[in-house]
């Protein structure tokens, strides 16, 4: 069988010269599932991955912030019996503890809200139930974060 046949087919001899040359290239077969200009853009972002990562990062920070908070509020200096308006005023006089509490508030609320979002997604089977429970969750979360932030920033030790 000669490669110079006028009706060159793709099937050449097992050994020997290829039927294709620079002037007669082999047809290109596109790789399966390759992204091309015709492939539709994905409609999903990385939200779930970012949320997963946030749970781990905020978790590590919260371990330090919350256990420090528990030590100060419940263990040192007579535990819970010392807490009162004067004690709060003394601590929030320092920007260090203001930042500590603000960071703890934001991270704990977002960490908890995302946790409860996962729980709702797992157990609420009807789409409508999920919608309402998450609406309630997000409303309560935004309200609580804003209220707590406002209280830390506008605290007035001489309110009376």
């Amino acid at each position: 069988m000669s490669t110079t046949e006028s009706t060159a087919s793709g099937i050449g001899p097992v050994e020997g010269a290829s039927v294709y040359t620079v002037d007669n290239p082999a047809p290109l077969i596109e790789a399966p599932r390759r992204r091309t200009k015709k492939t539709p853009k994905t409609t999903r972002g990385n939200f779930e991955m970012v949320a997963w990562l946030f749970m781990r990062l905020s978790g590590v920070v919260l371990v330090v912030l919350v256990i420090g908070h528990l030590l100060i509020q419940l263990v040192l200096d007579g535990g819970v019996s010392k807490i009162g308006f004067a004690f709060v005023a003394g601590r929030w006089a320092s920007p260090f503890w203001q930042v500590w509490d603000l960071l703890m508030l934001w991270l704990a609320m977002l960490h908890g809200a995302n946790g409860l979002r996962t729980v709702i997604n797992d157990y609420a089977e009807r789409a409508n139930t999920r919608l309402w429970l998450k609406g309630l969750l997000y409303t309560a979360t935004v309200f609580t974060i804003l209220l707590g932030t406002l209280v830390i920033f506008t605290f007035d030790p001489n309110i009376r």
Binding site: G148, D156, I159
Partner: peptide, 12 residues
């Protein structure tokens, strides 16, 4: 957070 917010109401 709600109980702590009471510091904004009054010390009492």
């Amino acid at each position: 957070v709600l109980d702590t917010a009471l510091v904004r109401v009054s010390p009492e």
